[in-house]
Design a protein around this nucleic acid. Structure first.
Lengths: 355, 355
DNA sequence: TTGAAAGCGCTAACAA
DNA sequence: TTGTTAGCGCTTTCAA
């Protein structure tokens, strides 16, 4: 780091300094020198020089030339909840451990934005793309396909690309069963005392609703259609749905299944408007894990999805020679109330973060 | 999008098709054509052709040539908590609204990793860097300086670069006062009933501790040193600290200040090991905002930092002609218990996310 | 109003 | 074991 400023050193600077050619320098500095049979002494000299002058490769130039970038992308719908933020956290570690550079982007569940973002990533010649939560997976797939970009869907059942999805049906069954069993401890439960809130017209919601209805019918004998209340994926809309229900019925259902932690935030906004003693005896199941939600003043069962396993499988599939549009199911876990699990942060040293 | 495959179209393909030169195509496609006085008809023709063939610029080539990339970086310590994930969310929106491409990376609070990540970003010729939570801001600063990369520190008091920081002192005062007032409702509070847990040897912790002690001394008349319990920033370590305290005293303090949401997660892990009735009457202040924490079964006061304002100020500073290493203070907000605020997600249409 | 040409920093044949 | 050379796709003078 003696070079105190000016412009960044290039392989040409180094070739002059070392009295070798640029291609020799290039080979030494990008690791391909062993197979180019460059003398150890030459390599050593160049490496020392590079170190001394604080050389770092211009990755845009390298990428331009080799049409690869060392970048691996993760496309998220949003950052701001524990499911996706912990997925991003795991992704970072995984990609780094493979010597590549993770790039996380979000597209706000907007199909236009999704395509736009993916095009940008393609323009940077990213090497692989993990798609977690696109509203239009097949549109994104088409772009990737066209650009020859390897990609997998994470927790998203695309029909055209390999997909690793959480077993939403099984998870919903687990969760529904847990809610019912818990509710039965407080006395008999009639079918119209158990609702499902949240979700939208997507695959995950369908599967979860299917699992919910099936278990409910089996255990409670019936499942009136009115007990399914889709609200979309937004805290505000979910809060309104609870408010409407409350106005109509004078209370919340005794027990309910909430389709995601975002919907659960909607419940909180509703609760914030009312004394919580009013709802002291509700029982909630949430399809998602958030450590704080686990300690709310009523029982909250949660389903924790194994995003680390999904990502790992994703890499495995991308590495495999044949990449048929398979669908891999990953099993989620039931988390009982008042359970604070460890997360990806725990793998860091004195991990955690300010904030 | 008629071109069904093969290689991506380049400006040369388009120049042949349009019967113009590559430089004309380039100018038309990068928006500089008005000032190059290119005929409207020519521009239109080329744009149609580009559209038709699904042309997208190779950003690595553009970046290589112009040594800019359109990329704006945000360096986070970690993703997985609401403070940073919501900062990432705001960052995305802000950068996109300026027509640039946000790149979020994390460095796990590891100084080596931080420098490494920043070097990578520099190698991609990113245009600006927001540094939120580096353990070694001045080391990072040196790298940026050397590369001529414009950067600001967010919630981090670097001495060498402009810094926008949350007013930790004032926030801690607000929070401490709120805790004390609330505790006094349940009866008199002695100085040894109010503790501070969490934090480490960093600027933010110092400021918060200073604010805490000052208010405590003013309102309660004293502040024994034993009442400050630094635990580092990790849920696991914080949980152990609470466990140790509990073993020693047979109870938790009546009221305490927790230094971050990560430390608060540590409290949860501790609580998960004990019946919560035991702690039904504790009063907690948390320096950070998490919507779920707001509804825990005991009063939780929180401080919400205004990361959106910090980022916005950051952009303003980067745009200003003179960039002295100023320090800008941003005021945080006190959030009373059972208050679920809106977040950056609410600015999306039917926002929110699966998971 | 447009084109020709040079070159950003790097990689990878192909020669030597 | 190493050097020469020809680009990767784009921007940007400068000349026409």
């Amino acid at each position: 780091m003696t070079d105190t400023g000016k412009k960044k050193a290039t392989i040409y600077d180094l070739s002059v300094l070392s009295g070798t050619s640029a291609s020799t320098v290039s080979a030494v500095l990008n690791g391909s020198w062993r197979k180019r049979r460059i003398k150890d002494a030459t390599a050593q000299l160049i490496q020392d020089l590079a170190e001394h002058h604080g050389y770092t490769a211009n990755l845009q130039a390298r990428g331009l030339r080799s049409s690869r970038s060392g970048l691996v992308g993760l496309l998220l719908p949003v950052y701001d909840n524990r499911y996706f933020s912990s997925m991003a956290q795991s992704f970072e570690a995984l990609v780094r451990s493979r010597g590549q550079c993770p790039v996380v982007v979000s597209a706000c569940r907007d199909p236009r934005e999704e395509r736009q973002v993916v095009e940008t990533l393609i323009s940077y010649s990213i090497d692989e793309l993990f798609i977690a939560g696109a509203t239009d997976p097949d549109g994104v797939h088409a772009l990737c396909e066209k650009a020859g970009l390897k990609h997998v869907n994470i927790d998203l059942p695309g029909t055209r690309a390999p997909s690793i999805i959480s077993d939403n049906y099984e998870g919903a069954r687990l969760l529904t069963q847990a809610i019912i069993e818990r509710a039965l401890q407080d006395g008999p439960l009639t079918p119209d005392e158990l609702y499902l809130f949240g979700g939208r017209d997507d695959h995950a919601s369908h599967e979860r609703i299917r699992g919910f209805r099936e278990v409910k019918r089996t255990l409670l004998g019936a499942d009136p259609d009115a007990c399914i209340q889709p609200t979309g994926y937004s805290p505000a809309m979910t809060a309104r749905a609870f408010e409407a229900f409350y106005e109509g019925h004078g209370k919340l259902p005794r027990a309910f299944f909430v389709n995601s932690s975002i919907n659960l935030e909607g419940l909180l906004r509703f609760l914030g408007q009312h004394p919580h003693e009013t709802f002291a005896d509700i029982i909630v199941g949430c399809y998602d894990y958030d450590p704080f939600a686990s300690f709310l003043p009523f029982p909250v069962f949660m389903i924790q999805q194994d995003s680390e396993a999904m990502l790992a499988k994703g890499f495995a599939i991308l590495e495999a020679p044949r990449r048929a549009p398979v669908t891999v199911l990953v099993q989620p876990t039931l988390v009982p109330p008042r359970t604070a699990l460890t997360g990806p942060l725990d793998q860091l040293s004195d991990a955690g973060g300010n904030g």
